[in-house]
Design a protein around this nucleic acid. Structure first.
Lengths: 217, 217
DNA sequence: CACTTAAATGAACGGTTGTTCATTTAAGTG
DNA sequence: CACTTAAATGAACAACCGTTCATTTAAGTG
């Protein structure tokens, strides 16, 4: 007894994966336990060997969301290291946002979060704390250091962080929505890079005109 | 016969108003016909004298959404008139966004749209066409004229329109979410105005230094 | 082999859902 | 007044929901 034998063929993981897909595309309430079970070739009752109830499946997915790539935009380094990379850091963040919209699992987690946020205060807190606040704070710390080093014009770091991340978040949403209808995402995708260029040009200290010249004249 | 006598005490409107409230806070599927009926002191069956079924209520609300203030950010004037107002126009748009988050009905329509967008392609189309595309196009026309008149630096008008509207949309969402938890919206609200200042400063042609000086030195 | 036990079955349960409908109520019309 | 008709009632229905459970299956262990 108590040897904790593992006999599972990964059913629990299958349940989570299929539930995520279904919750993301139909919504939590609209997805029935029978939907989930039949999507992996089981009877409804079998699910209750792996989860206490339907809500427990959602909670397990929320846990996944918290440690997912969605909420960890930055690499593991500290702001005091990150700021040195300048525009390349911003470009990297933008690319991360862009790729997340095209990774199946992250996209589903994103859609789940967006839909249930308005009903579920746990998801709302998670969105606020991890998805928004944490990234905003870290990025404003980066901008603060860039200002001290006179890489960028000095202004409100928190505002700058919002100005930079906010459009990325919006474009990410746009891409996800466009994909739902099978529409082209190319023009939305272009905006990711255009935003980085535009943003960096508007904040950098234009001493050296590092690459492209001024766009007017 | 056929005189079309109106005997109603506005029940149909009550149904729509209460349904909107309930759909926005609990979701469409989660709201029962009995919820709606009892919220206006009726029995469930009475609703079917006014709407064919539950879906018809949602569709009626979608029609309201289409003509609501949410999707008509601009005044009725043409871009060739609007552009002359310069920064004041942008400030006005930002204020409109801000106020919409505090108007009960518009806020509810917004929440309904955000929740059901991912499941309902009608709402998704409406969001894309009216809420996003229409405003983006009109604003880029305005920016284009501002460039021709050398009020602002010349660049991609479509990009500029996105750069301006996108943060406003995000802040609007933030305010709505914060209000759901009864949290303070003051710092989010501040960002509306900060954004206008920051944005205008970064695009205007800095010939005359119209008000605030450069922020570094 | 016998024994244990995680996992799957499938019927069954109580509750809730959207919807229907015969009936009643009450307001407008001549 | 009598007549018409929109609106409200409240019980009822069939379908569907999440969940339970006695039972079976099958894999690991000694």
């Amino acid at each position: 007894m108590g040897t904790g034998q593992q006999r599972t063929g990964g059913t629990k993981e299958k349940i989570l994966a299929k539930s995520l897909e279904l919750f993301a595309s139909k919504g939590f309430k609209e997805t029935t336990v029978r939907d989930i079970a039949s999507s992996i070739g089981l009877q409804q009752g079998a699910l209750y060997n792996h989860f206490k109830n339907k809500d427990a499946i959602l909670m397990a997915l929320i846990d996944q969301l918290m440690s997912s790539a969605i909420v960890t935009i930055f690499e593991e380094k500290e702001p005091s290291e990150l700021y040195k990379r300048g525009k390349a850091l911003l470009a990297n963040i933008a690319t991360t946002f862009k790729l997340l919209s095209f990774d199946g699992k992250n996209e589903a987690l994103f859609r789940l979060m967006m839909q249930e946020m308005y009903k579920n205060s746990d998801i709302r807190d998670l969105y606020h704390e991890y998805f928004y606040q944490q990234n905003i704070k870290k990025l404003s710390a980066v901008f603060f250091m860039m200002m001290q080093e006179e890489m960028i014009r000095s202004s409100d770091p928190l505002l700058l962080a919002n100005e930079f991340l906010t459009p990325l978040f919006f474009y990410q949403t746009q891409v996800v929505l466009l994909k739902l209808d099978g529409k082209s995402t190319s023009s939305a995708v272009l905006l990711f890079e255009k935003h980085v260029d535009y943003f960096w040009k508007s904040i950098r200290i234009a001493d050296k005109e590092e690459n492209g010249g001024a766009s007017y004249g």
